[in-house]
């Protein structure tokens, strides 16, 4: 009886932690999206002047610029795609965390969002490779691509959890 009570108390504390974590993360995503927007506007409209003097615009390891007007058009296009994807991904993450905040852990929507995040990481890896190629650095680091595949793998595992949950709901 006591052990059961402790378990449920621990479970409640854990769920509460997830809720708090999702709230904090959603706030940070908001801040990050705001900063990313600023960066995109800085690139397109030359607002970089409002940022601190030592600020440099960095798109990838070897794509760093001090002024927006010296960025070549292909790099600007790739950077726009990259940050566009970042913004979309931030939105997906925001919604996923919203579902976690509501206590919905194993739903079809969650799995779709997680899978999308995996695809995003792989696409971002390709865009980064193209950006580095523009700087004549053809560096291939597979860590990011493997991370993307691992996220898709996690989505499959969560899908198994969803099936268990559905089975449980159907059990009278």
């Amino acid at each position: 009886m006591n052990a059961t009570g402790n378990t449920s108390k621990n479970g409640g504390r854990r769920l509460n932690r997830i809720k708090i974590f999702s709230k904090v993360c959603r706030f940070l995503i908001g801040v990050y999206a705001g900063l990313s927007c600023l960066l995109i506007l800085a690139c397109w409209f030359g607002w970089v002047a409002i940022l601190p003097g030592s600020t440099k615009i960095t798109f990838s390891e070897h794509q760093t610029y001090t002024a927006p007007f010296i960025i070549p058009a292909p790099v600007l296009a790739l950077a726009t795609v990259k940050y566009g994807l970042v913004m979309f991904c931030a939105l997906v993450l925001y919604r996923l965390l919203g579902l976690y905040g509501q206590g919905k852990y194993f739903t079809a929507k969650n799995i779709t969002y997680i899978r999308f995040l995996g695809y995003y990481v792989v696409v971002d890896w390709i865009v980064n490779f193209l950006l580095e190629s523009e700087a004549h650095y053809r560096t291939i680091i597979f860590t990011q691509a493997v991370t993307g595949l691992v996220i898709i793998f996690i989505a499959w595992i969560m899908d198994e959890g969803r099936k268990i949950k559905e089975e449980q709901e159907l059990t009278v």
Partner: peptide
């Protein structure tokens, strides 16, 4: 890292679901 820890908490929920399923 933070998401890994959060996933661990969610996996823990999955464990409980699994245990309940086995007891049914």
């Amino acid at each position: 890292g933070f998401f890994g820890i959060m996933l661990a908490c969610i996996m823990d929920e999955g464990c409980k679901l699994k245990e309940e399923q086995e007891l049914t």
